[in-house]
Write a protein that binds this DNA or RNA. Structure first.
Length: 495
RNA sequence: GGCGGGUUGGCGGAGAGGUUACGCAGCGGAUUGCAAAUCCGUGAAGAUCGGUUCGAUUCCGAUACCCGCCUCCA
């Protein structure tokens, strides 16, 4: 069994990973607030921790890993959307409109993350289904003296937890000195944060010992991880921007509510995503969602490949150039794999080792590049050998190695069957009419070639290309693929 | 202002105190009527300054620049 080493944000060191229970490795990752489509930055932790999940499943067994990623479905932005819809004339109660919005967004999220080849987590709890446990945890914090109720709010008493700030390396006094936040008058201390807040008639709320209200953001993750993973578990992940205050507050809540337990042993944070060298923001005009890219024809697998090219602990830059390069590499890999009947195999030890070393995805991909080159050479040698022997296609001698190549790629979530359509001709298939027309054109071109009328042959190829039919000449004659994004494609029948 | 991350060849991006990273692009060649694809070969680096060392791109320090967090944005 390979030794997994992970960089622990809590200790700021790379440590050997030892699960608390070998037959149940437990990981929690902060999921999205479901108020809108996921933007590209949201996708990075999904891909990073999906890769970790795949590694853990490989090493400990698929049935021995529990992965929890929540949906935050109570949030003021969701409320605002629902309110706006009602004002625009939508029917239904506010609660129904909120439910509609969160349902819709969760559906989008699943579709978009599936496209990136991310496995669904073991549990995807929704915050609204865990209000009871949240209330119980808040009450427990009050009972222990770590929280206090004021004016319908419940606040966490930061000064009651000595280790507050340890994760993010800040002292409470420093934070107060640099604070730019307006301090609510009912706070005992400026750094105290909200566990529960009151709701008005326009806001969703639940009954509680402190009146009708809704939970603060941080308590959600503490309550859900406790319910699904217990008071102590192995890995807690999320974006580096969540380290403070969200994760710091989670630690304070969970460790004070369950002082005998350790909460998360390892904390992992992915660095941020940039676009063409700049932070993604609406004002810079470089803000886009995963769905935007997919709709532009950038396959999810290509997005994933670009993400995995940079170590998760480093800032990552998304560029169109990277995407184009990644698409080329993946197409070559798939071209090779397509020549064999692939069956499951043991991934390369080098790939497992690279991933085991703090998820060095870049190094794993490098190894796959090298293996690809070798496999390609062997494939060509075998191909030429068989050609010289006068028989075609028997490349089975190499298939075992190719199996390992593909299985290794799959450990990274690449070359999965469900993602394979893009590199062929998209999900669509040509209509019979189109096929017949293209075949007739190709016949005419073949005749032109035979009679050495190359000008005519080139003209036919150019006409087809203009319409999105890409023709190439090979040893076995002409072959063609359809570019469905070509706007002229529908005009073929007029020619 | 406080805390944290980064700076490697045209671009992207790793490992390792002394050995070719690797990929993409480029260039040369093969193949092809041409093109595409494919194949073979190939140049190019370590922000700046100083220190440790027989030797540093790799360790330490300083400087510069970039980025993030400190505002319920992953």
């Amino acid at each position: 069994m390979p030794t997994i080493r992970l960089h622990n944000s809590k200790t700021r060191r790379k440590e050997v990973f030892e699960p608390l229970k070998r037959n149940d490795v437990r990981i929690y990752v902060c999921g999205p607030t479901v108020y809108d489509r996921a933007h590209l930055g949201n996708a990075r932790p999904v891909v990073v921790f999906d890769t970790l999940y795949r590694l853990l499943r490989h090493v400990y067994g698929a049935d021995h890993v529990t992965y929890v990623r929540n949906f935050t479905d109570v949030d003021d932005k969701i409320n605002a959307t629902a309110l706006a819809r009602r004002q625009a004339g939508a029917s239904g109660t506010l609660e129904e409109l909120i439910a509609q919005r969160t349902e819709e967004t969760i559906g989008w999220y699943h579709a978009d993350m599936d496209a990136l080849g991310a496995l669904r987590p073991t549990h995807e709890p929704r915050a609204t289904a865990y209000i009871g446990p949240m209330v119980a945890m808040i009450q427990s914090l009050i009972d222990k003296g770590h929280a206090y109720a004021r004016e319908g709010h419940v606040l966490f008493r930061v000064r009651s937890y000595a280790a507050y700030g340890a994760l993010s390396g800040r002292s409470v006094d420093d934070m107060i000195a640099g604070a730019r936040v307006e301090v609510a008058p009912f706070k005992e201390d400026p750094m105290d944060f909200v566990l529960w807040k009151p709701s008005d008639a326009e806001t969703p709320g639940w009954e509680s010992p402190w009146g009708r209200g809704r939970p603060g953001w941080h308590i959600e993750c503490s309550a859900m991880s406790y319910e699904l993973l217990g008071p102590s578990f192995d890995i807690h992940g999320g974006g580096i921007d969540l380290q403070f205050p969200h994760h710091e507050n989670e630690i304070a809540q969970s460790c004070c509510a369950h002082p005998q337990a350790g909460f998360a042993t390892v904390w992992m944070h992915n660095e941020m995503l940039q676009v063409e060298g700049k932070k993604m923001s609406k004002s810079l005009g470089n803000f886009f969602t995963v769905r935007d890219l997919l709709d532009q024809g950038v396959p999810g697998e290509v997005i994933r490949f670009v993400f995995l090219g940079t170590h998760y602990g480093k800032p990552m830059d998304w560029t169109a150039e990277k995407a184009a390069g990644a698409a080329g590499v993946l197409r070559r890999w798939r071209d090779l794999a397509a020549e064999y009947d692939i069956s499951p195999a043991e991934p390369y030890a080098e790939v497992v080792a690279a991933l085991s070393n703090d998820l060095n995805t870049s190094k794993a991909i490098t190894f796959l590049h090298k293996q690809y080159n070798e496999l390609r050479q062997r494939r060509n040698a075998a191909f030429h050998f068989h050609m010289s022997e006068g028989k075609l296609g028997d490349l089975s001698r190499n298939s075992e190695e190719v199996d390992r190549f593909v299985s290794s790629a799959k450990l990274l979530g690449l070359l999965e069957e469900g993602l394979s359509d893009w590199w062929l001709d998209g999900a669509d298939t040509p209509t019979d009419g189109l096929i017949a027309w293209v075949e007739s054109m190709l016949l005419a071109r073949a005749e032109a070639k035979v009679s050495r009328d190359y000008a005519k042959a080139d003209e036919i190829r150019a006409r087809l290309a203009n319409m999105g039919i890409m023709v190439s000449d090979g040893k076995d004659g002409q072959s063609w693929v359809v570019d469905y994004s070509n706007p002229n494609l529908g005009n073929w029948s007029k020619n």
